[in-house]
Amino acid sequence: HNLTITQGKLFFHYNPKLCLSEIHKMEEVSGTKGRQERNDIALKTNGDQASCENELLKFSYIRTSFDKILLRWEPYWPPDFRDLLGFMLFYKEAPYQNVTEFDGQDACGSNSWTVVDIDPPLRSNDPKSQNHPGWLMRGLKPWTQYAIFVKTLVTFSDERRTYGAKSDIIYVQTDATNPSVPLDPISVSNSSSQIILKWKPPSDPNGNITHYLVFWERQAEDSELFELDYCLKGLKLPSRTWSPPFESEDSQKHNQSEYEDSAGECCSCPKTDSQILKELEESSFRKTFEDYLHNVVFVPRKTSSGTGAEDPRPSRKRRSLGDVGNVTVAVPTVAAFPNTSSTSVPTSPEEHRPFEKVVNKESLVISGLRHFTGYRIELQACNQDTPEERCSVAAYVSARTMPEAKADDIVGPVTHEIFENNVVHLMWQEPKEPNGLIVLYEVSYRRYGDEELHLCVSRKHFALERGCRLRGLSPGNYSVRIRATSLAGNGSWTEPTYFYVTDYLDVPSNIA
């Protein structure tokens, strides 16, 4: 807008934040220059609390790290170098490059900038070799853009010569660093050979998330399962459950009422301010606690030095998902009996873990797994792929695949051998790939016309006998059925096997 004052003059007093240069501009645009008398524009009460600059400061050096910015700028000295009290560095987070010096300023003089007072450097006698002032900004957020400017702080001049310097606002972004852990990993099994893994992005990506790394490792069953005799009275049979499938998407929606109208769909109840505040506090606490764990609990591995020492970490090797089922080394339970199943799973520490690289999504279907087997899954978020990966501390989750139908069934015939004193040795093959492992066998036998009897055969007993022995049988026709019990439950009964026990007292003698 054009402003013209045809008559009258300007009068400025007691404006401590208004620089004289701005008042002189007002004289020019209003056409009143030359009308004012000496005392109409006070030299001592206008701009006496402001830094009124008329020179431009330029930054000469900028260096960044993930949490620091090192700045240096060209030296500046007023005509009387004693008038320079120091520099004021202003900075704040700036997602967009549209910041002005006066953003967030209120009537009390406060604003949204963080201000650092910096002492002037030592003055050199040689004007050509003056030290460049600077400042190291610490405690910054990774991968965050900051708006920065600097200006001088000078003393009051009796001659009211307006001098000083100020830089333009520059924008500097800190470097990326390792992201925080992925949030809320959930693993479920939808079949006997697959596990579905879902997660949420890290709360602090500290860069642009480029991919996720998912490692999985087959877990050995508890050692007590191999040692305890679950045929003993009072000892509860062990059981394991597989990871249940995901709930429906509708039930997972946030901010939804727990109660549904019987007449149909209901609208979600909005969260109160107290609920939102509580969630923010919980989120802040979780982030602080995660940072504490990362800094205190997890110790970084030592990389190899120039002395030739090897990095103890196993090298990563990509495998196809079809090879995942046989990740671990199978060892027989008892070496003397080769027909026992290889369900003991000690994992070799030198073995390469299978892994998958996930790009542009937060889910993965891990296939080719062994049925009813526990897996430990390790999830890392990465925001750099080359020249070397920059990934987060791992988040861990466990899951067990679903049982395989008929995996616990005894394959092959049940054979028998009759000894003296009416002892019958029953023999059968253990299931080759049971659900988890076989903890015991149930032997059901009966003599024709009598009630059915049951015998429990422990895992250890089966390994020693290759089956079991029935003792003290009365003469007669017998039928026997056997079924295995694994961590997933009972298998199917075998087809009945028949044998006849004679009275050993009636056996004919070869003595003449």
Results as ranks from 00 to 15, higher is better:
residue 203 S to P: 02
residue 204 D to T: 07
residue 204 D to P: 00
residue 206 N to S: 04
residue 207 G to M: 11
residue 209 I to M: 15
residue 209 I to L: 14
residue 209 I to S: 10
residue 209 I to V: 10
residue 214 V to W: 01
residue 214 V to H: 00
residue 216 W to C: 12
residue 219 Q to F: 09
residue 220 A to S: 11
residue 222 D to I: 06
residue 223 S to A: 14
residue 223 S to D: 14
residue 223 S to T: 09
residue 224 E to A: 13
residue 226 F to Y: 08
residue 226 F to R: 14
residue 226 F to C: 07
residue 227 E to A: 10
residue 229 D to C: 04
residue 229 D to L: 03
residue 230 Y to H: 02
residue 230 Y to S: 03
residue 231 C to Y: 07
residue 232 L to E: 10
residue 233 K to R: 15
residue 234 G to L: 06
residue 234 G to C: 15
residue 235 L to S: 04
residue 235 L to K: 04
residue 240 R to I: 15
residue 240 R to A: 03
residue 241 T to V: 15
residue 242 W to P: 15
residue 244 P to T: 11
residue 246 F to E: 05
residue 246 F to C: 14
residue 246 F to Y: 11
residue 247 E to A: 11
residue 249 E to Q: 12
residue 252 Q to W: 06
residue 253 K to S: 12
residue 255 N to V: 05
residue 259 Y to Q: 12
residue 259 Y to V: 11
residue 262 S to E: 02
residue 263 A to H: 12
residue 263 A to C: 08
residue 263 A to T: 06
residue 263 A to K: 06
residue 266 C to V: 08
residue 266 C to S: 05
residue 269 C to L: 05
residue 269 C to H: 06
residue 270 P to Y: 11
residue 273 D to E: 10
residue 273 D to R: 02
residue 275 Q to I: 04
residue 276 I to R: 10
residue 276 I to Q: 12
residue 278 K to N: 05
residue 278 K to A: 11
residue 280 L to I: 12
residue 281 E to N: 00
residue 282 E to L: 05
residue 286 R to T: 02
residue 290 E to H: 05
residue 290 E to N: 02
residue 294 H to K: 02
residue 296 V to E: 05
residue 296 V to S: 11
residue 297 V to H: 06
residue 300 P to D: 12
residue 300 P to L: 02
residue 301 R to N: 01
residue 304 S to P: 13
residue 304 S to D: 12
residue 307 T to R: 14
residue 309 A to G: 11
residue 309 A to V: 12
residue 311 D to N: 11
residue 312 P to G: 13
residue 313 R to H: 00
residue 314 P to E: 14
residue 315 S to I: 09
residue 315 S to M: 10
residue 317 K to M: 09
residue 318 R to M: 08
residue 318 R to S: 15
residue 320 S to C: 09
residue 321 L to C: 15
residue 322 G to Q: 10
residue 322 G to N: 06
residue 322 G to T: 14
residue 326 N to W: 04
residue 327 V to Y: 13
residue 328 T to V: 14
residue 328 T to Y: 10
residue 329 V to Y: 14
residue 330 A to K: 14
residue 331 V to P: 13
residue 332 P to N: 04
residue 335 A to Y: 05
residue 337 F to E: 10
residue 340 T to F: 11
residue 341 S to R: 12
residue 341 S to I: 12
residue 342 S to T: 10
residue 342 S to I: 04
residue 343 T to I: 06
residue 344 S to N: 07
residue 344 S to C: 11
residue 344 S to P: 09
residue 345 V to M: 09
residue 346 P to T: 13
residue 348 S to R: 13
residue 350 E to K: 15
residue 352 H to S: 09
residue 352 H to T: 11
residue 353 R to P: 14
residue 354 P to L: 12
residue 354 P to E: 09
residue 355 F to P: 11
residue 356 E to Q: 08
residue 360 N to G: 09
residue 360 N to A: 10
residue 363 S to A: 12
residue 363 S to P: 10
residue 367 S to Y: 10
residue 368 G to R: 12
residue 369 L to I: 03
residue 369 L to D: 03
residue 370 R to M: 12
residue 372 F to Y: 05
residue 373 T to K: 05
residue 374 G to D: 03
residue 374 G to K: 14
residue 377 I to Y: 13
residue 379 L to Q: 02
residue 379 L to S: 02
residue 379 L to I: 12
residue 381 A to E: 03
residue 385 D to H: 13
residue 389 E to M: 15
residue 389 E to Y: 09
residue 390 R to A: 05
residue 391 C to M: 14
residue 392 S to Y: 02
residue 393 V to W: 15
residue 394 A to W: 13
residue 396 Y to E: 06
residue 398 S to D: 02
residue 400 R to M: 08
residue 400 R to T: 05
residue 401 T to L: 05
residue 402 M to Q: 11
residue 404 E to R: 10
residue 404 E to Q: 15
residue 405 A to P: 02
residue 407 A to M: 12
residue 407 A to K: 04
residue 409 D to V: 11
residue 409 D to S: 12
residue 410 I to S: 05
residue 410 I to V: 15
residue 413 P to H: 15
residue 415 T to W: 03
residue 415 T to M: 12
residue 415 T to V: 14
residue 415 T to A: 13
residue 416 H to N: 09
residue 418 I to E: 12
residue 420 E to V: 12
residue 421 N to S: 11
residue 422 N to G: 08
residue 423 V to Q: 03
residue 425 H to Q: 06
residue 428 W to V: 03
residue 429 Q to E: 02
residue 431 P to S: 05
residue 431 P to G: 04
residue 432 K to A: 11
residue 433 E to W: 13
residue 434 P to G: 02
residue 434 P to E: 01
residue 435 N to D: 03
residue 436 G to N: 04
residue 437 L to G: 13
residue 437 L to I: 11
residue 439 V to W: 09
residue 439 V to K: 14
residue 440 L to F: 03
residue 442 E to R: 12
residue 442 E to W: 13
residue 443 V to I: 09
residue 447 R to C: 08
residue 448 Y to V: 12
residue 450 D to Y: 14
residue 452 E to C: 08
residue 454 H to F: 03
residue 455 L to Q: 11
residue 455 L to S: 11
residue 456 C to M: 11
residue 457 V to E: 01
residue 458 S to G: 11
residue 459 R to V: 13
residue 460 K to R: 10
residue 463 A to E: 14
residue 465 E to P: 02
residue 466 R to G: 15
residue 467 G to V: 08
residue 468 C to L: 07
residue 469 R to Y: 07
residue 470 L to G: 02
residue 471 R to Y: 15
residue 471 R to V: 09
residue 472 G to D: 08
residue 474 S to N: 11
residue 475 P to C: 09
residue 477 N to I: 11
residue 477 N to G: 14
residue 479 S to H: 11
residue 483 R to W: 01
residue 487 L to P: 05
residue 492 S to H: 12
residue 497 T to G: 11
residue 497 T to L: 09
residue 498 Y to I: 12
residue 498 Y to G: 13
residue 498 Y to V: 11
residue 499 F to H: 01
residue 500 Y to V: 12
residue 502 T to Y: 14
residue 503 D to F: 05
residue 505 L to S: 09
residue 510 N to R: 08
residue 510 N to S: 09
